[in-house]
Structures are given as structure tokens and as C-alpha cells.
């Protein structure tokens, strides 16, 4: 069963990079360009994993995670945060909000796929 990954990032470059890596690994990729669009796509596509950027307009990554966790329908849904900010406080805040894990940008495509596999089986 092909798994669906929802990627939420305001950078087209980053969305393209994610898609390239995930397509190659055989995932189906749905994209959204900010947090609000991401939540809409989440309802429309029921993805198996969500990968979200933190710094985004409209609704940031923390907001996305909090809303996903507040919705019982998405209980247990793996949400990975994508950020260049390896600063511990960002990671900590994402964890507190309920992030499953994180991917530090820039990422090696193989490692990205590895992390996705680790949280989604």
C-alpha cells in the first residue's frame, strides 16, 4: 500500500526537494504551502506522515502540530518538523507541541526517507 506523505513548506524549493526524495522512495506526496493549507490537505488526503516546516506564514509549524494533536481523528499520526534551526529550543518547542521527530535541513534524501520510514514503518 503506497503511503501518502503530506509536506507543508512555504518554500517551493523545499517542497520540490522533499517530493523528489519521497517520490523516488515510492511514496505518494501531497503538498501544501502553509499551515492552513496543510490542515486542509490533511483532512482531504488522510496522509500517513506529515512533514512540516516551522517558519511559515498564516500558521506556523507549531500551530500545525498543536492542531493535529488536538484532533482525536489524527491520534498517533506521525508529524515530523523540518527546520534548519537545530537550536535546541526550537526542537524542544516542537516536541512539546507533540512533534514525532524532526529533520534537520539541509537533508540528505536517503536520511529523509530513513526518518520517514522510522516513524511510519
Amino acid at each position: 500500500m503506497t503511503k501518502t506523505i503530506l509536506t507543508i513548506d512555504d518554500s517551493r524549493t523545499m517542497r520540490d526537494m522533499l517530493k523528489l526524495a519521497l517520490d523516488d522512495a515510492g511514496y505518494r506526496v501531497v503538498q501544501a504551502e502553509d499551515g492552513i493549507a496543510g490542515l486542509a490537505a490533511l483532512e482531504a488526503h488522510a496522509p500517513d506522515v506529515v512533514i512540516t516546516d516551522i517558519n511559515m506564514p498564516n500558521l506556523d509549524g507549531f500551530g500545525v502540530i498543536e492542531r493535529v494533536r488536538a484532533n482525536p481523528r489524527h491520534k498517533g499520526l506521525p508529524v515530523l518538523v523540518l527546520t534548519t534551526e537545530s537550536a535546541p529550543e526550537k526542537k524542544q518547542r516542537a516536541r512539546e507541541a507533540g512533534a514525532t521527530g524532526w529533520i534537520v535541513k539541509p537533508f540528505d534524501p536517503a536520511k529523509l526517507v530513513d526518518v520517514v520510514r522510522r516513524v511510519s514503518g
Binding site: T2, H45, K75
Partner: peptide, 16 residues
């Protein structure tokens, strides 16, 4: 939940 488990066949193939 089933939806999260990849069973959402109804939406498969739909583009954003």
C-alpha cells in the same frame, strides 16, 4: 484510526 493507516483509498490520486 483506519484513516491514518493508509486506508483512505477514496482520496488516493487526488492532487492538491
Amino acid at each position: 484510526p483506519a484513516a491514518g493507516g493508509g486506508g483512505g483509498g477514496g482520496t488516493a490520486g487526488a492532487a492538491p
